[in-house]
Design a protein around this nucleic acid. Structure first.
Lengths: 116, 116
DNA sequence: CTTTTATATGAACAATTAATCATATGATAA
DNA sequence: TTATCATATGATTAATTGTTCATATAAAAG
């Protein structure tokens, strides 16, 4: 009898898993956050901002690409409440608003090096 | 003189940020992992599997939806090397292959509760 | 061998997303 | 006020993604 046939064990696990399962709303919120950081260019923006606030022009320099594209990406990150912007004269300075996300990206970066 | 005009400070930050910037390849790999877990249904599968391996049928029960959809989602997760499958008789048992990702989803879940 | 069970796959379509271009806004300087 | 600089926005189009349905495969049972 293989493990796969031990129905009892699986049913038990299934019940346990369902008990700790986040709600649909929580899953959607988590997914939305992950989606915001699931594009190389947006991740790059986050790493650029992890040292402190920067104006759009400098973000463009850091990530490459054109101003409009970066602005749209910033909008996406802002909508996910990962970054925030404040006006200072003609410029708008962006900074990280959710440091948990930085923790997560840093973790992910470290994990790249080890063989899972 | 506002902070935004302190060009020196920004240039310094920019230089620092670029120094610690992951390579394009690393950014793509990280983004791919995040993308794999950026859909509520796939996240749900991960939480279901966090208690141990389950066959597809049970995963379908845990997440709802039809068999084909779940199979496609498992394929996506497998391609991102987040889960793995092993055959056991007629069934295929899936389990987490990258526990770092679970660490990250657990973190994200906890962070939902606090006000960033 | 044929049937049944468990899972995977491919094609087709809809929905979402990203990139680009042109233009708009808002702040400052002249 | 007008011109300029910094950034945002909307429309368009291209690419990617998710879902469904029908079918294929692989193992086991009969």
């Amino acid at each position: 009898m293989t493990a796969c046939n031990r129905e009892e064990l699986h049913e038990e696990r299934l019940k346990e898993a369902l008990k700790n399962m986040p709600t649909d709303g929580q899953l959607e919120e988590m997914a939305a956050r992950f989606k915001a950081i699931s594009e190389p260019s947006r991740l790059k923006i986050l790493f650029a901002l992890s040292g402190g606030e920067l104006c759009v022009e400098h973000i463009v320099q850091a990530v490459g690409g054109n101003q409009s594209a970066v602005s749209h990406q910033l909008k996406t990150l802002k909508a996910a409440r990962v970054v925030k912007g404040r006006r200072a004269g003609k410029k708008i300075l962006y900074s990280i608003s959710d440091w948990h996300v930085i923790t997560i990206t840093e973790l992910a970066k470290e994990h790249l090096n080890c063989d899972e």
